[in-house]
């Protein structure tokens, strides 16, 4: 099949960008979307043009490196799929595709389709963990965890931090990402001791990073390649609200300051 691509080209964070048009004349339907771009890049290099920069690593949909907008949809049209796992059989001859990087204040563009998602690491660093000294843990079976709790924790823990939720959200909110981590640890007995502190600190970090607020639109859930459910946001809000009341007047110390 033959495709026409319009791709966002931007040399670096400080330079202005623009859309550029490319032809992809021989696209095989068994290719992944990124393989289609590989072939296009090989062509550009042969023509002594600069190839399109895009982020990718595992190409199995698990590392979370890849992701950009295809015709306004994060990771493209197939539900529950990262762009590296999106295959060209979902497109048809003559399609015109617009590729753009994630758009969010908290995700500055570094080059072409590559953005800086460092804010996600800082959100996790603010409280998305269980403090446990190496080597000091009790036996793995010492605390039984009901299968249902483990399953729900795992559902939330499946997040790959690709950033599609932020890109899909009209407010550029990172509530789904943050809620997923809070929900993962809240469902496990190991996560209880730091539950309040975690919610307070992670939610505070969200606004420090200039992510927008969640207004329950739900685009994030639709765009999430791991099908993380909106209910993680409810868990986050509940934990945050509870922690805020429980520590009213002392929220500074509860947040570990």
């Amino acid at each position: 099949m033959r495709l026409t691509l319009h791709v966002w080209r931007q040399a670096s964070a400080s330079k202005p960008g623009r859309m550029e048009r490319y032809d992809a004349p021989d696209v095989n339907e068994d290719m992944s979307f990124l393989e289609m771009l590989d072939v296009l890049n090989e062509k550009l290099i042969a023509e002594h043009k600069e190839p399109i920069a895009f982020e990718h690593d595992c190409r199995e949909g698990i590392c979370g490196s890849c992701g950009f907008m295809i015709n306004g949809m994060a990771h493209g049209p197939q539900r529950g799929t990262t762009v590296c796992q999106l295959h060209m059989r979902h497109f048809k001859d003559g399609d015109v595709l617009y590729l753009e990087p994630w758009r969010a204040t908290a995700f500055p563009v570094l080059k072409d389709l590559v953005v800086d998602r460092g804010a996600f690491d800082r959100i996790v660093a603010s409280g998305g963990y269980v403090s446990v000294r190496t080597g000091s843990a009790p036996d793995g079976n010492a605390i039984p965890v009901p299968k249902e709790s483990a399953d729900r924790a795992m559902d939330a823990a499946a997040c790959i931090a690709c950033g599609a939720c932020v890109a899909a959200c009209p407010n550029a909110s990172a509530a789904l990402f943050t809620g997923a981590k809070i929900s993962h640890l809240s469902h496990l007995p190991q996560g209880q001791a730091e539950r309040s502190r975690r919610a307070l600190r992670m939610v505070r970090q969200l606004s420090i990073e200039e992510f927008g607020s969640c207004t329950n639109i739900g685009e994030c859930e639709a765009a999430c390649p791991k099908s993380i459910r909106l209910e993680v946001i409810a868990t986050m809000n509940r934990d945050h609200l509870k922690a805020s009341f429980a520590t009213r007047g002392e929220s500074q110390s509860a947040a570990g300051e």
């Binding site: 269980v130 190496t134 793995g140 039984p144 299968k147 483990a150 993962h184 496990l188 190991q190």
Partner: peptide, 22 residues
């Protein structure tokens, strides 16, 4: 054996039996 204990304590959601055991 210590690795499993460590990871469980960190909140790694390992698969569980209905009784709550790993």
């Amino acid at each position: 054996v210590n690795i499993i204990d460590q990871c469980v304590a960190q909140g790694v959601p390992f698969a569980r039996e209905y009784g709550g055991a790993l």
